[in-house]
Design a binder for these strands. Sequence first.
DNA 1: TCATAAATTGTGCTCGAACACAGTAATGCG
DNA 2: CGCATTACTGTGTTCGAGCACAATTTATGA
Lengths: 346, 346
Amino acid sequence: MMKKYTIKDIAQLAGVSKGTIDRVIHNRGNVAKDVEDKVKQLLADIDYQPNLIARNLKNNRIYQIGALLPDPKKDAYWEVCSDGIQQALSEFSAFDIRLNTFLFDPTDTKSFMEHHELLLDSAPDMILMVPLFYKEAKTVLEHYKALNIQVCTFNNQIDASIASFIGQDLYQSGRVAAKLMHSIIDKGDMAIIHIDEKYKNAVHMQEKEKGFKSYFDDLDGFTDDILKCKIRYTETEDKLRDFLKDHPNLTGIFVTNSKAFHVARLLESENKGHIKLVGYDLLSENVHYLKDGVIDFLIHQNPRQQAYLGLKFLIENLVFEKDIPGKHLLPIDIINSENVTPFLRA
Amino acid sequence: MMKKYTIKDIAQLAGVSKGTIDRVIHNRGNVAKDVEDKVKQLLADIDYQPNLIARNLKNNRIYQIGALLPDPKKDAYWEVCSDGIQQALSEFSAFDIRLNTFLFDPTDTKSFMEHHELLLDSAPDMILMVPLFYKEAKTVLEHYKALNIQVCTFNNQIDASIASFIGQDLYQSGRVAAKLMHSIIDKGDMAIIHIDEKYKNAVHMQEKEKGFKSYFDDLDGFTDDILKCKIRYTETEDKLRDFLKDHPNLTGIFVTNSKAFHVARLLESENKGHIKLVGYDLLSENVHYLKDGVIDFLIHQNPRQQAYLGLKFLIENLVFEKDIPGKHLLPIDIINSENVTPFLRA
DNA sequence: TCATAAATTGTGCTCGAACACAGTAATGCG
DNA sequence: CGCATTACTGTGTTCGAGCACAATTTATGA
C-alpha cells in the first residue's frame, strides 16, 4: 500500500528544502549538479505524481476558448452540439473556462470566413471548430498554426498534420451502411443519394460513397448496379421524384448525410415502402421515419459526443497539460427502431 | 461575463466574515437569523458554486472502494471490466482511491458469498459489484444497505430500490435482437438458445427472451414458430447438434448471452451458414465468427463502460458529493462485421 | 449594575504546488 | 585579505474552502 508523496516528503527524503525540489521538477536551474541528480533519481524511484488539484488551485487564470461552429438554425444536425459543449463546461466548472461561440452558415463559405475573423479578434487560447469547407478550413487552420493556437476539429477531417480531429472514419461508415444494406435487400438496383448545396466541397460525402462501393466491390459475384444521384438542397423533391420514376427497379437507397427524411417522405407518399433506406443521424424527422419503418437503419455520427470530446480535450490540455490525441475515432453506431431511444437522451 | 465568486467575495458583499458565510453554507448554526437569511439570499442571487478543487485540497483522506466481480479467468466476458476500472482510477489519480478487488467464480454462488465476506472484512467506504445471482445478491445488498454502505451494481439489475444500477435495458435489447433478426431472415423457424449453468437464477436471459418474443407478438400476422432451447454449459455441443437435427427448418438463432460462438462453431462445421445468428458481446471468438459472416449481428453490452461508469459514479460521490443516479441505462450497440473494430479498442 | 453565560462573529491556520524573494555559501578579482 | 559577484538554497506567501478557536457582542440573573 504505497503512500502518496508530496513535495515536502521528497524534500525531507533528499535532505533539502521544497524550493529545491520545485526547481528540479520544473528545470528552473540554480541547482547544484549532484543535488539535481539525486533528486531526479528520487523522483523517478517513487514515481512522483504532482497533486493536480493543488497545482490548479494557484493557477486561477481565465481560459478563453473560441468555438467556430455551424449554425443549428440552418441545419438541425448541429443542434445537439451545444448539449455536448454544456456537458464539458459543467464537468470542468471548477475551472474558469470562457467559451466564445461563433456560428456560421453551413451553406456559405463567406460566413465561415467572416466568423473566423471575429473568432480571431476574441483572442482565444484554444479553438474548437467544424472545418466544414475543405479549402477555407485549410487556410484558416494554417493561420492558427502559425499563431501557435491549438485547434480541435470535429465532424470532418481536413489534414492529419495540421489539427487534432474527432469523428468517425467516414469511409468505414460507408462500408457499414453497405453491409447493412446488403443484409436487408433482395436483388435489385441500389442508389447512393447525395443531398447538399455543394457536393464538390463535401469530402465527407465522397468518402462515404467510396466506402459503400468498396464493400460491394469486395463481394464475389456481385454485379447489380449502384446508381448515384446528386441533388441540391433547394430542388430536393422534384429531382427525387424524377429519379425514382427513372429507376423503377430500385430496392435500396443510401443517403450520405442527415437528409434521409426527404427521401423517406417521398417513399411514403408514393407507397414505395418496400424500398430499403439507410441514412445518417438522429434528427427528429429521421427518427420519426425510422420508427415508422420507412427508414431501416440510421448511422449515428454523434455530433454531441464529438463536440463534448473536442472541448474536453482542449480543457484537459489547458488545465492538466494532458496530450491532445491527433485523431480520435468514435464508434460507428448502428441505429434501428428498437435501440434509438437511449441514443436520444442528452 | 460573470465573475467567479469566492467565499471571500461573498463575505465582503454581505459585510460579514468568511467564517459566517461558511456557517451558512453548511448549516452549522450559530448565525443570527437576519444575517443567515441575507447571506442565503445572496448565495442564491449569484448562484454560488464552491470551488471543488480548493475543497478537496484539504480533504486528503484515503478512500477505500471494494469491488466484487466475476473472475475473468472463468468467463472471458468479464475481461474488459478491468480496463474500465483502470480508466476510472487513472482519471481520478489526483485523489487517493484504494480499490480492493474480490473475484468470484461466476458459476458458483458459494464463491460469491465467500468473497462477499472477504470484501466486508476490508471495511470499504463504497462498493462496486456485479449481482450475478439474484437471491444471494439481494441478501448481500440488504446487508450493505443496513450498514449504510453505498453500492453501485452493474450488468444485471436486482432491485431498483436497493442499489444503483448501470447497464442495458435487457428486455429492450431482446427487442433489438428481434428487429435485427426480422430484417435479415426469410420465412422459417426461429430459436432462442440459452447457454448457461443455471437458467433459473439468470433473470437477465429471461428478460432478453421476453423482449425478443414481444417484438414478434407486436407484428401483425406473424405466425412462425419461436423455439426455445436451454443448454447447460458443459453439455453444449451435443445438445446443440441434436437441436439442429430436430429442427431442419431453422432460419434464425438468437443466443441470449456471450456464448454465440459455440453455435457459430457448429453452424460452420455442419455447413449451415445460411442460418442467421444474433448474439451478444465482443469476445474474440464471437468477433472472429462475426467477421467470417457466421454471426450476423452482435449486441454489445459494453461491460468495460459499465464498470467504468460504476466506479466513476462512486468516486464522484465520494470526492465531489455528486448524486449517484439510481439507474443509468447504456445504449444498446448493434455490431456487425464492418463497425466492430472501433468498439474493440480500450 | 456588574459578572457571567450564551450567542454570534472574526481570525488564522491547514491542505500541496508554485514562485518570489531573502538568505547563505562559494568563488573571483583587485 | 576583503569585498563583490555568482551560485545555490531556504522561507514565506498565495490560491479557496473548511474548521478550530479566539474575540466580540448580547442576554440573563443576582
